[in-house]
Design a protein around this nucleic acid. Structure first.
Lengths: 157, 157
DNA sequence: GTAGGTGCAAATTGTTTGCACCAGG
DNA sequence: CCTGGTGCAAACAATTTGCACCTAC
């Protein structure tokens, strides 16, 4: 199964591909860009969901075998500290991550399937701003999670 | 240090104290009320914060040594399933709990001081229900966290 | 060349569970 | 009684970390 792919073991900047969105942000913040970080940055740049570390690791390995899960853990932690990715906690006992440059969005978690749906809602954002103001604060960020289930129509068990 | 208190090892319903708020709810739902559950129910009834399991265990032991941490875990899980307590996740790697009958409340976190302010907002809850419905779901629980700061009146930095 | 990054495996931490025993209804 | 609850310790799962080696800058 070891496909004789040419792009394996991408040796850092020897790699010709252009910097990914996240890699660019890393560079701007002066982070040392190793091959592994470049791969993880690419995976994050290309993901449109909320992968957990295990999943990021899987995707990273698919691009380049030279990544260990420990490094994925270390990297997402670093990126979170730098404000490049956001850590999400959907109460599953592990964290999920997504790039912060994807914009403000909220989540609806299907409590039965664990599926996560992203959504935006201006009315809600306005209300949130309102509530903060009422408490004497200026809103910086909102984290909203709706835990819900599909109405039981014909599947009680 | 073993205070010769008289109320230790409260033997189940031999205990004369009236049922706590949470205990009452347990009884209503037909849960078998053991001495341990009674203690944990009391601890939860008396708490006004968001204790984690470790903290609940500490408080429970302070009231009655006959509680193990495993039982605290099993009990909060049971109470959560019964809708008696809510599990909170502040992204610290552990869960915190609080009685649901305290009303649906949310949190505003002061990003400068880290202080957490609790608040309720019916309009918000209604809107949340609305949003879920619009997405085809039935709301089970809402988690709202507002990250905010006091308006800069005297130099942010 | 050197500070810092990485892999591996062991260590931590939060939580669950198997099993023998005990208690509530 | 008999089902279900409990304590203990071992099992688990997610995440962190010590250490020797390696690499970006």
């Amino acid at each position: 199964m070891t496909q004789p792919g040419p792009a394996r073991r991408s040796r850092a900047n020897t790699d010709s591909r252009p910097a990914s969105r996240i890699e660019q942000m890393c560079i701007e913040r002066g982070l040392k860009m190793t091959g592994q970080r470049r791969i993880i940055a690419r995976v994050l740049s290309e993901s449109e969901d909320h992968p957990d570390v295990e999943e990021l690791y899987r995707r990273a390995v698919a691009l380049d075998a030279d990544v260990s899960i420990a490094t994925v853990y270390r990297t997402v932690r670093l990126l979170e500290e730098k404000g490049i990715v956001a850590r999400r906690d959907f109460g599953e006992g592990r964290s999920r991550y997504d790039p912060t440059d994807r914009g403000q969005h909220h989540h609806l978690i299907d409590v039965d399937t664990g599926k996560v749906i992203e959504f935006e809602d201006e009315a809600h954002d306005a209300l949130a701003r309102d509530i903060a103001a009422k408490l004497g604060f200026e809103l910086v960020d909102v984290r909203l999670q709706l835990f819900a289930r599909r109405p039981e129509q014909k599947k009680p068990k």
